[in-house]
Design a protein around this nucleic acid. Structure first.
Lengths: 109, 109
DNA sequence: TCTTTACATCGCAATATTACGATAATAAAT
DNA sequence: ATTTATTATCGTAATATTGCGATGTAAAGA
């Protein structure tokens, strides 16, 4: 196997899991933090900042772009990546929908 | 490869990625939602609720337990699993530390 | 035009994850 | 003591992810 049985879960569960998955890598966390810190956009800087090969960074950026967290626009011969504020807020809202629930415990634990 | 280069990232980045990773599966989301909904604890119910084999459920529970989100206590011949409220709140705080940052965009995007 | 720079993509090798049957282990019930 | 119920663990097959070198592509500069 190694194949998630997506069909037995709700769309909401699958989508939420997908969002968590794209954030489930330290390189992608680092990329997001760097983009946020620079307030502006970046591109090739990341290859220097993180210690990963250009191909690897490019792949991580693609995954972040696929879920819409970042967007890239061509600036001459380089590409400028930025957070999509709208998507960013949406993700936060979805996470809080999950985490704001009361998690009262009954007897045993 | 297939091996994350954890040593080039900060502890914070690695820990955050690990938290996201455990939530990055629809079955584990479903398990958490079910535990929350039942307010009380559960155990074998999950095997009936979700359409996964007992061994698979047990494995997912173990992963949730490993990061401390849930805890299990033996109740006769079954095991009662509950959310650990303290850890739950801590995780929410860590996520919000990331997502509450301002994500102002500069020129290009 | 030729070169350089910045990215993207392809194709792999190494490792990780997912799922499950089989098989323990433990406690209750008979 | 034997059976039954509930869970954990082991082993394994199928698939996914990570990382990177090599190669492609497109724009800028010489």
């Amino acid at each position: 196997m190694g194949l998630t049985k997506a069909e037995i879960f709700t769309d909401e569960q699958n989508e939420l899991a997908l969002l968590f998955k794209v954030l489930a890598h330290p390189a992608r966390i680092a990329i997001l933090q760097h983009i946020i810190k620079q307030k502006a956009c970046i591109c090739n800087d990341l290859v220097g900042e993180l210690g990963l090969a250009q191909a690897t960074i490019s792949q991580h950026l693609k995954e972040l772009k696929n879920v819409g967290i970042i967007q890239g626009s061509v600036e001459g011969k380089s590409v400028c990546y930025c957070i999509d504020e709208k998507v960013w807020k949406q993700i936060q809202m979805k996470f809080n929908e999950l985490f704001n629930q009361d998690v009262k415990v009954k007897q045993c634990c």
